[in-house]
Each structure stands twice: as structure tokens, then as C-alpha cells.
Design a binder for these strands. Structure first.
Lengths: 334, 334
DNA sequence: CTACAGCATTGGAGCGCTCCAACAATAGTG
DNA sequence: CACTATTGTTGGAGCGCTCCAATGCTGTAG
């Protein structure tokens, strides 16, 4: 279990510890002969550098901390992929932690990440108060993904939720729909800009908006639809706040005898793997998740390298993915 | 950005650095008066211990490394939750890494986790060759989740896939089904024990088995069903290798005019969040994922504390979750 | 043959912490 | 009252590494 140290490698290769250090860091000022000897000794002993000792001695870290608010959400998996790709390519490691969407747990997770003195910290949709983020930003570089902030010391990467919903509304209008309802995300992250985007888009088309209050779950989507069914003036299309909500809505519509998309069109948001299932085949709005991660990593690394001090605010363009749950409205145009 | 050190706290509190260390580690042999002074100074400076320096000096680590083969799979999220809960409770931190189901990337991920000299390593469904696992096990304690191994130095936590499929078959038989087909998982992880479980269960009931070769995706499930449709002797029930496959199968069945569960029953495996959607409502087999994580963490910590040297092999019992895709067969019992 | 680059190599200090032996101060024993 | 325990506190060594100033070495110019 005891791993060899640099000293062991040095002794075996017949050189000094400092020389081994130079070889391990790929310094050019080492003779080929000694380099070969060191690498051979290292190979024989199965030596690999001790990351913690290295970072302690160099007073620099090659670690980026990532706090994922919810590991269960596949959304974050792709963001992490993007982060991972860029970090790895630049010689940084990721250490990931999870907060489980609870402010208290998230705070602990943050604390624990900071105790590793990471070069930077990426917080994916954190729920901690702004003050906690500020205090983290005093200690290391911080980038926020899927959460906005006015703090001048942190970078942010978000999608333009308003624009995304706008795409959905435009699509429906171009198919001929005029009575388009929105099932909103209540207090959920990004629900507000999506709702505003809906209202703006409807106004732009001179249409009457209709917002049903809902949430980011399939049960909530079904409930909102049942409320809609109980009232007059059934819409011909629904724009949900996310994919789960949309699937719940579809389910309730089918239970009530509506066919999707023949009788009513439904659009989701997020383009989760669920939406892509042929059984579901949901028209939805895609966020460039991988790009979120890449940009977040790049923002962090720019700060780490001291290339930039002013905050950067990325606002990415979502795109519409048309599948099988949208179609022109049938008959009765009014 | 520069964080205070123990020395700073000691100076401010008017004590020695060693005393601050004792306070930080919660030692009982510190007078209340000094303890208070130290904690106050630490609070004022916003001090928190440097995890890396600590682990370097103590030659012990409070870090457990976790390699997740695929972050996109929600299965692992719950395993990580279980690991996290137990680790946190015992004062350990998790550092997570991902291998993206590629042996080469996974190997690098392993290397990078090892460079932190973690107290233990949990590998979730790794795809690297056994030799790589053995070499990791030479350096630290290792537990494998959702992958078996004969290595005497590693612990394993798995579900009894054969038994899980057996539960599904028993359920269908008790409903009155006799023509039950299995869509298998091909080369996928755990596909073999599930297939064997199917054959065993069918034999136990004196029924004729029928295995359609398939894969762990919804497209593959649909394809297998279309092949089934082209032949004679349509089964009255299908046991899929996983939930995605089952959803694809249902979709193809409905396209062909079959109603589920009236005309044909379908059972999945894994109890993913997909299965729980009311729109899907899939009868499926649940694996105790959180329990996987808890047991893995406990196995690791036992080894870390030197309480056990012999390997432990956990084989957990899956359970059946009955939802809306199974029902007694209609008429024509033959 | 000395002087001086230029280069590869090295010992030592130190990163922030833990651990240990040693210590002072107080309490308990005969 | 000297003596040993007991309790609380401390300086110093050292974890595995990086960094720096200093070293030895070769080669070339004066």
C-alpha cells in the first residue's frame, strides 16, 4: 500500500530528488540520458507524483472544484462533460461534490471543496444565498452555471430562457396556432425568464397570453392540464416549462381523450433524454449544455492564469428541436 | 485570495501552532479558555484547515475517490448519494471523477484519483481490465459496484440480476402468462446473469424460453419487437433487459396495434425515473441503488480502519415494482 | 592557460499541517 | 515537603514535493 516517493526514484536512478522533480514536470533542461534513467526508475517502482504534496509545495493548484446541485439531473452530467474536457486538456483535474439542492448541505459541500484550495470553483445551479457565493469568491475564482449573479467577482454562464421559449412560441405560431398556453415553473430556477419570454413572444405576435401556474414535475404538468380542461377556451397548443412537465401534460391530455399532436400540440424545454425516446418524441428546446461546461471551464482558467479580472457573462442561445408532439391545429381557427 | 494559515490563527489567539492544531482536530485535552480563544481568532480570520497539508502531514487521507463510469446514467447518481451519506457521516470527503465508459479515459481517471492518495476507491461499473483494478488495489482499498471480480483484495457490491428477472417471470406466471419472451442485453453489463435468470425461472415453471437478442436502448427494444411480430406465436408477455429497452418495446407494440397491458404485458429492469412517469408507468425491477452506495462506503471504511482484510461480496436482492404495464393475459390461453 | 559563459544538476529551505517528546504547572501521595 | 502523576502546552522534525541559489562541468574566447 505504501507508494514510492520522489526520493526512492532519485536513489534508484542515481540522481537527486530535484532532478526527478524536473523530469516529472517535463522540464526541457534535463539531459536525455538522465531523463531516460529517471523515467525508467519511476516505471519500475510504479511511481506517480503525489498531487497534494505537489500543490502544497508549489502553492498552486491544478484542481477545479465542481459543485453539482443535483446529480440526478442529467442536465448537469453534460455540463460536467464540457468542464471535464476543457480542464483535462489544460492539465487540470476536476473534483466533484454534490449539494442535493439543500442550502445547508450545499454550504458544507462548498466548504469541503474550498478546503482543497482549488484553483477555481464551478457552481452548477447553486441554491446557497448570494453571500455564500461572495465569500467563496473571496477565496478562489468562481463561475456560476445556470444561475445569475450581480457579483463583480464571479463569472456566469446561462442560457437565454426567454429566447428559448420565444422559439417555441414562434414555432407554434408558424404552424398556425393562436391559442397557446404556458405551464410555468413556479419558483424553480429559470422559471421567471421563461415566463417572461412567453409573455414577450405572445405580445410580439399580438396574441392573448395564458399562464397556468405549475412546476417542474410530470405530476404538476398533469394537474395544470386538468385545471385547463375544467375551463372554457381550450388552447390548441401548450408550452411547458420543462420536459417532465410536458410529459405529464401529454399524459393528462391523452387521458381526457385528446390526441397529441392532432388535437393539441405540446412543447417541452431542456431536451432531456426522455424527450428523445421514440415513445415520447417531444418537441422541445435544447440548451447547449456541453458548451455551458466548456465556457465555464474557460472562464475559470482565464481567471486562474490572471488573463482577466472583469467578470464575464455568457448568455447562450438555445435551439428548438422539432419532434412529434407539434403539428398545425385542426379546423376551428378561433 | 490568500487564506490565513494555522500560524496566523495561533498568533492572533496568543498560543502555539500546535495548540491550534489540537483545537481544529477537536482534541479533548485543551482548556476551555484557550479553545474559545482559538475558535474566536479562527472565526475572525475566516480560517479553515488546508485539507491537503493536513493529509500530507498526517499521512492519512479522509478522501474517498469515486470513479463513475457514466455520469449520464441516473443509476449512479443514487449510488453516489449512498456513498456520500455514509462517507460524510464518518468524516470522509468524496472526490468524483468520470471515465465516460472508455477504458483509456477511465484509466486516466483512475490515475488521477490515485494521485490524491485517497483512503479508498469506489469504482462504479468500471470497464477497465481486471489488471488495472488489481494495480489500483495494490495502492489503496478498492470496492467495485455493479461489477464482479475474483480479486482477493477488492470488495464487490452487486445486485442479483438473475433473481431480479426471476421475480419478473414469477409475477407474470402468477398472472397467468405462459408465453413469456426475454429481450436480452447482449454484451451489456449484467446482461448475462439476467439472461440466465430468465432461463432458470422459465425452466422452474416448466415453460419454453424464448430469448430475443437485443440491447440496452429503446431503439433496440423496438427492433426486437418488430422481429417478434414477424414470426409466429406472439408471446403474451415480454421481460426486457432494462427500462429503456422496455419503453422501446412498448412503443413498437403500440405502433403495431397491440395495447399494453391488455394485449401484452411488459416488464422492465432498473426502476429508472422514466419507469415512474405516469405516462409510462412501467412494471419493473428495482435495484437498491442507495444501498449499493452505502454498503460500498462501509466496505471501504472497514478496510481503511483495518477492521477487515478478507474480501466481502455483497449480492443484494432486487425487488419488483408493479405498475401499469402488466395484467393477466386475455382469452386464448395457448 | 586563465576567464567566463552557458548549461545541467544539486542541496537546502519551506509550503501548512500533524505528531511526538519534552516541558511547565498543578494536583495527589506517603 | 520532596516525589510522582496528571493535565495542558509547546518547539521541532518531517510528510512529499517545488523552487531557488549555488554548484560543477564543459566549451569557447582572450
Amino acid at each position: 500500500m505504501a507508494r514510492p516517493t520522489m526520493e526512492d526514484v532519485a536513489a534508484r536512478a542515481g540522481v537527486s530528488r530535484a532532478l526527478v522533480s524536473l523530469v516529472m514536470r517535463g522540464s526541457p533542461k534535463v539531459s536525455d540520458q538522465r531523463r531516460a534513467a529517471v523515467l525508467e526508475a519511476a516505471g519500475e517502482l510504479g511511481y506517480s507524483p503525489h498531487a497534494m504534496a505537489r500543490s502544497l509545495a508549489s502553492r498552486t493548484s491544478h484542481v477545479l472544484g465542481v459543485m453539482v446541485s443535483d446529480l440526478h439531473n442529467a442536465f448537469f452530467a453534460e455540463v460536467v462533460d464540457g468542464l471535464d474536457a476543457v480542464a483535462r486538456e489544460q492539465g487540470f483535474e476536476l473534483i466533484i461534490n454534490t449539494g442535493g439542492r439543500s442550502p445547508a448541505r450545499e454550504r458544507k459541500a462548498l466548504e469541503s471543496l474550498l478546503s482543497f484550495r482549488p484553483a477555481g470553483l464551478a457552481l452548477l445551479s447553486p441554491v446557497v444565498p448570494s453571500a455564500a457565493i461572495k465569500s467563496a469568491a473571496d477565496q478562489t475564482s468562481v463561475v456560476l452555471v445556470a444561475r445569475s449573479s450581480r457579483l463583480s467577482t464571479v463569472d456566469t454562464v446561462n442560457d437565454d430562457g426567454g429566447r428559448g421559449i420565444g422559439l417555441a412560441v414562434d414555432h407554434l405560431v408558424s404552424l398556425g396556432h393562436r391559442r397557446i398556453a404556458h405551464l410555468d415553473g413556479g419558483e424553480g430556477t429559470q422559471a421567471a425568464p421563461r415566463r417572461r419570454g412567453y409573455l414577450t413572444a405572445m405580445a410580439a405576435h399580438g396574441l392573448e397570453p395564458r399562464v397556468m401556474s405549475s412546476e417542474y414535475t410530470d405530476a404538476a404538468g398533469a394537474k395544470a392540464v386538468r385545471e385547463l380542461l375544467g375551463r372554457s377556451g381550450m388552447p390548441t397548443a401548450i408550452v411547458s416549462c420543462n420536459d417532465f412537465n410536458a410529459v405529464g401534460a401529454i399524459s393528462a391530455l391523452e387521458d381526457a381523450g385528446y390526441r397529441v399532436p392532432q388535437d393539441i400540440s405540446v412543447v417541452g424545454y431542456d431536451n432531456t433524454s426522455l424527450a428523445a425516446l421514440r415513445h415520447v418524441s417531444l418537441t422541445t428546446v435544447d440548451q447547449p449544455r456541453n458548451e455551458f461546461g466548456r465556457l465555464a471551464a474557460e472562464a475559470l482558467l482565464q481567471r486562474v492564469r490572471g488573463e482577466r479580472a472583469e467578470p464575464v457573462r455568457h448568455l447562450l442561445h438555445p435551439s428548438l428541436v422539432v419532434r412529434g408532439t407539434t403539428a398545425p391545429p385542426t379546423t376551428s381557427p378561433r
